[in-house]
Design a protein around this nucleic acid. Structure first.
Lengths: 352, 352
DNA sequence: GACCGCTACGTCAACGTTGACGTTACCTTC
DNA sequence: GAAGGTAACGTCAACGTTGACGTAGCGGTC
């Protein structure tokens, strides 16, 4: 025993003693075994007798010991944590995705670190850096427009990354997308089938990947039906209420007015609904992305539904497969959409 | 140099060399300084010359060094991470709260670990344990009904905890609540002011704190107005569609029918709206908790709006004050609600 | 020129855990 | 009863970082 006795513990005389949380070693000492034995018990490793296990368990409960996962992470290099960077957790699509990811993470005994990029490149980047600094075992990222090349080194170094909802630029990894082209095509075809020939596309800002794809689907549907395109019927702008109202009004009051509208995402749908609220006879409407209460509006809104839960689950499952060591070639998954007719998309064009 | 040269590095011959991420020491070696100096540069500590700082910075950039926060956490005991346990991140109220918490966390250079309890006590408990094992600097918890006594030791040990939306049982800490009683009272009073005397309360399951409070507010408003209570006008059940429909129908078709409804939360509101969709002349309606598109329904729905962002921000700010060392007495904050008249709550009772 | 103070570093150990590797004691097996 | 094997432990060092402390060198002061 060359060890000198510890000096009076600091804070011992204080009223509320903020006691140090017990460590593995504390448990070991109290149970009269080596730290490693306690470690074995905690991790369910073999090689510990029943009696010892029982004793260690009791001491752990008595002391309220909880393993320090920072130390474990440092030692093992794995944090039992994955990171998720999305646009904004408070958006319904993303929060549903987040929830689904969390669920898969729990099944793998992992926790989830979240960060919102708010569509800001720099913020995406710093978030990713912060997550990697925390030794996350893997990362799910909804890339902001721009480049994700900064992730290249880490991907090459073996950190699994999955891109969700939008593909990355300058970085290669598994990617889970919605089949936007086909979804939009399907939705627009639905309107065409009702007899519409003048269909307005009300989409979000021009630089957004999903919007580009959906416009493409819109165009494809028109082509399929031999209906000529008209750029005046395509609007791409941040769905700010006043601007969308003006757009919608101009589309509906043009010489050859639109008899139906197709919206590019939920925000656009909301803006269009607001614009149509007190207008005259509403045009037919199909919206990309489902939203709560869509079926309670008058008329109920026909949508091309995405599957945020499916996307979150798929992305997370791929991620954990990679974490488990899957080194097969990167894959790109495109999730199907589902057309849900509810009324607004089934109106025929007004006669005249 | 008693050290033996390292054996051939594993994975060196492989095609894709998964290179070890550089450490502080690697940077130090490359820059020809001590690890501690690099540490100082990284953390912006004083005591490093300009030339040295510059050189170290360059090497850091070249090597792509990123500090290992597990090691830092282990050393310092602080993880620069806070934890949030809520019912379900995918619910609008909670995702808005999550987002607000994240925003405050970022300002404090912290990240956010999230976990959903799904109203399950055991899951809440294991989530909290997992978060504490990760050395989170603080915790925001929306307590599930039951007891949070298991948190006592950690709170006493100095881990800051803030309870949000519902108070804890068996544990004392700062708490941020909505003023449910006053909000419900205000909403019901609004209906009374329109002349309603038979007002149905459609609330969620009986064991929920917020619902208890809102019923209390409902009762208080009736008392204030001298309107007798009638238990047949109070429903407390999980807002499952069929059950709520039956309840609503019975309230509206009773001998002395309800002429107005007050809903206890968003889920109840949705269920009621669904039930009323194809019914006869709708009763007046005031809903507790705002929801998207409330103003687009016919009629637009009058709500008692909560402030999830305010709650998240307040809880997080208190938490960071505690983390910074604030040891003043625990506080309970009650956030005000806001009545937003939109139409459904301003209808007079049908004559007859 | 002895002493002080200061800046700019470096050294060392420790944070709590676990992988790699010993060391017992006891049990087989021929 | 010697060799071999195995179950049940223990020892040690290392993961990457930083707090505490040490030290060299230089300028200034009396």
């Amino acid at each position: 025993m060359a060890q000198s006795p510890p000096p009076a513990r600091p804070g011992q005389e204080g009223a509320a003693t903020p006691r140090r949380r017990p460590t593995l070693r504390d448990v070991a000492e109290a149970a009269g075994v080596a730290a490693k034995t306690v470690s074995r018990v905690v991790n369910g490793e073999a090689g510990v007798g029943a009696a010892t296990t029982e004793r260690v368990r009791r001491v752990i409960a008595e002391l309220g010991y909880r393993p320090n996962s920072s130390a474990r992470t440092l030692r093992q290099g794995r944090a039992a944590t994955i990171g998720l960077v999305c646009d904004d957790v408070s958006e319904p699509f993303q929060s549903a995705l987040t929830r689904a990811v969390e669920e898969v993470a729990i099944r793998h005994e992992c926790m989830l670190l979240v960060a919102s990029s708010l569509h800001d490149r720099e913020r995406e980047r710093t978030s990713v850096q912060a997550l990697l600094a925390r030794q996350v075992d893997g990362l799910i990222v909804t890339p902001v427009a721009g480049s994700q090349a900064y992730l290249g080194a880490d991907i090459a170094a073996g950190t699994p990354v999955v891109f969700a909802d939008r593909p990355a630029v300058g970085a290669e990894a598994d990617t889970v997308l919605v089949d936007n082209v086909e979804g939009a095509r399907r939705g627009v075809r639905h309107l065409l089938e009702q007899g519409h020939r003048r269909i307005g596309f009300v989409g979000d800002a021009p630089h957004l990947y999903t919007q580009d794809e959906r416009v493409e689907g819109y165009r494809a549907a028109l082509r399929d039906a031999g209906v000529p395109e008209d750029d005046r019927l395509i609007s791409r702008q941040v769905p700010e209420s006043g601007a969308v109202r003006a757009t919608v009004e101009s589309m509906l009051s043009a010489p050859e007015p639109a008899t139906a509208l197709f919206t590019g995402n939920a925000l656009c749908t909301y803006a269009v609904l607001r614009a149509l609220r007190d207008a005259g006879p509403p045009p037919a409407l199909v919206a990309f992305d489902d939203f709560p209460l869509a079926e309670l509006l008058h008329p109920a809104v026909t949508v091309v539904a995405q599957d945020p839960v499916g996307m979150g689950r798929t992305a997370a499952e791929i991620l954990f497969r990679r974490i488990a060591g899957d080194t097969s070639a990167d894959q790109v998954v495109r999730l199907r959409t589902r057309l849900i007719p509810r009324g607004s998309g089934e109106r025929a064009p007004a006669e005249g």
